[in-house]
Simulated scan of single mutants.
Amino acid sequence: MDLQQAADEAMAYLDSVGVAAEYTISNHYLTIDTDDVSFTVNKNASSSMIGKFKLQYPQKSPN
């Protein structure tokens, strides 16, 4: 997965849980900033980033 694909996937997930975020890609690193936290990964670790988002921002179960 390249960094743009990782950014797209992460932004889609964050949008699905209602978390506003912005991302930047520079020097082979992806940084995603939310109001609470900033995540920075290189292309080798980008696939594990979604798991970190799921821990930080879990899906809310419908009532």
Rank of each mutant, 00 (worst) to 15 (best):
T34M: 02
K54N: 10
Q59L: 04
L55F: 07
K54A: 03
S61W: 01
K60L: 09
S47Y: 11
L55Q: 13
D2T: 14
M1A: 14
V41E: 04
N27P: 00
Y13T: 09
P58G: 05
T31G: 03
S26C: 05
N42V: 06
A45H: 07
V19D: 00
Q59M: 02
I50D: 01
F53V: 02
D8F: 06
L55G: 13
M11K: 11
F53M: 10
S47F: 06
L3R: 06
M49F: 15
A21D: 06
T34P: 09
S38R: 14
T34Q: 02
F53L: 15
S47I: 09
L30V: 10
L3P: 11
V37D: 14
Y29W: 09
A7R: 08
K52M: 12
K43Q: 14
I32T: 11
Y29P: 00
K43M: 05
Y57L: 01
D15R: 12
M49K: 04
E22N: 14
A7K: 12
L14Q: 10
G51W: 03
F53G: 01
L30M: 07
F39N: 04
E22F: 00
Q56Y: 10
K52R: 14
Q56S: 12
P58F: 09
T24G: 07
Q5N: 13
S61E: 15
A20T: 14
V37R: 13
S16R: 06
V19P: 06
I32N: 03
L30E: 05
F39D: 02
S38C: 12
F53Q: 04
S26A: 15
S16V: 04
N44K: 14
I50A: 03
L55R: 11
T31C: 02
D33W: 00
I25E: 03
Q4W: 01
F39K: 03
A45I: 00
S61F: 07
G18A: 08
G18S: 10
A10M: 03
E9M: 06
F53N: 02
N63R: 12
M49A: 08
G18L: 08
N44F: 12
S47R: 13
A21T: 06
N27A: 14
G51Y: 07
V19I: 15
D36P: 04
